[in-house]
């Protein structure tokens, strides 16, 4: 690939981040080998007691503690050594501890991502990689997005483009940076009028687009059997209204957050192809979102659907 083109990509991504401030979602710099399949069932437990109503951090005794759990049987597959496809289909369940308003359970959105490694400079000490991910997600059940905070999703089609760069020193310590743009279509609701800083006479709600940024520092320890990451994610919506005073939120809200996270990934020597990931994340700043603590547990199992030809690892 030509240098000009690389510059184009870089400028394109920066351009997006400037014009559209916003985004969200976890991203890594991992690719499958060709014909390698990874099965990664993931369990997530999110909860909050306080939330940001607009910019006001408050509790709500009529909710108590809000909990959202999801099970996501994720799949990743290497089309080539440089291109992977990822599939995600979470089952989500929500409830509050007060228990007067009904929680919701259901299959949320089917998402498909294509991830490609576009840049790679490598020598004995330095390894630099550049990746691009394009994603598409769409609701596949008839859940209602206009039932916040209990709704299991935003009920929109989401198109995303994300650039990731990773620098690794002596295959031990690495820094990963990501920036993504999320384009979300309108969500259909069950009323034909709503308020979004003014009347809207439509059965659709405008769901803000978003930018997301990520900075992650990682370290391999214990003979490369344990990977530790600490990082921060920032989502910034480029439009949207605030939750109105003492009112539930709605999909039109400007949802921003900054979180801090720590993640451990363990590769047991006795189980070839298996890893266990545990992570913890905490929102410490936000707008129109819960002050969420999220715990995630994932087991990954990767294997080759066809015999592998070379010995390059997946990382």
């Amino acid at each position: 690939m030509t240098k000009t083109f690389k510059h184009f990509i870089f400028i394109f991504c920066i351009g997006l981040s400037i014009t559209h401030l916003r985004s969200q979602t976890p991203t890594d710099a991992l690719l499958m080998d060709k014909n390698q399949l990874c099965i990664a069932p993931m369990y997530t437990h999110e909860s909050w007691k306080e939330y940001w109503e607009g910019t006001l951090l408050r509790d709500n005794l009529n909710i108590g503690i809000f909990t959202k759990q999801s099970i996501n049987p994720m799949l990743a597959y290497g089309i080539t050594d440089k291109i992977s496809v990822l599939l995600s289909l979470p089952y989500v369940t929500t409830k509050d501890s007060r228990g007067q308003l009904q929680g919701v359970s259901g299959i949320q959105d089917l998402s498909l991502f294509l991830k490609a490694k576009l840049l790679n400079f490598k020598n004995s000490s330095h390894d630099f990689g550049g990746f691009l991910t394009a994603g598409f997600g769409t609701p596949i059940s008839n859940y209602l997005s206009d039932y916040q905070p209990y709704a299991i999703g935003l009920g929109t089609q989401e198109f995303s483009l994300r650039a990731i760069v990773k620098y690794e020193y002596k295959t031990q310590t690495y820094l990963r940076l990501g920036a993504g743009y999320y384009h979300r279509t309108d969500t259909k609701v069950e009323r034909d009028y709503h308020y979004n800083n003014g009347s809207v006479y439509s059965e659709y709600m405008d769901v803000p687009n978003a930018m997301q940024y990520e900075v992650t520092l990682g370290q391999w320890v214990a003979n490369n059997s344990l990977q530790i990451e600490v990082g921060t994610h920032i989502q910034s919506s480029n439009s949207g209204d605030d939750i109105r005073r003492q009112n539930p939120g709605q999909p039109t809200n400007k949802v921003n957050f900054t979180n801090g996270s720590i993640s451990l990934r363990y590769f047991p020597a006795f189980l070839n192809g298996v890893s266990i990931i545990g992570s913890y994340a905490q929102n410490f700043a936000g707008r129109n979102i819960g002050k969420t603590q999220a715990l995630t547990g994932t087991i990954t199992y990767q294997f080759y659907l066809k015999k592998k030809n070379n010995s390059e690892t997946a990382n």
């Binding site: 690939m1 030509t2 083109f5 990509i9 394109f12 440089k82 291109i83 294509l114 490609a116 576009l118 691009l132 394009a134 598409f136 089609q157 198109f159 995303s160 483009l161 384009h183 279509t185 309108d186 979004n196 003014g198 009347s199 809207v200 006479y201 439509s202 659709y204 709600m205 405008d206």
Partner: peptide, 29 residues
């Protein structure tokens, strides 16, 4: 490689800009 980048970006742009958005009028018609 170049084709790959073209593919990614054009698929994204195509999908984004052709994705269905609706009129959200502030007044009745």
């Amino acid at each position: 490689m170049k084709n790959l980048i073209y593919l990614f970006i054009s698929v994204f742009l195509f999908a984004t800009f052709l994705s269905c958005e609706h009129d959200l009028p502030a007044n009745a018609d």
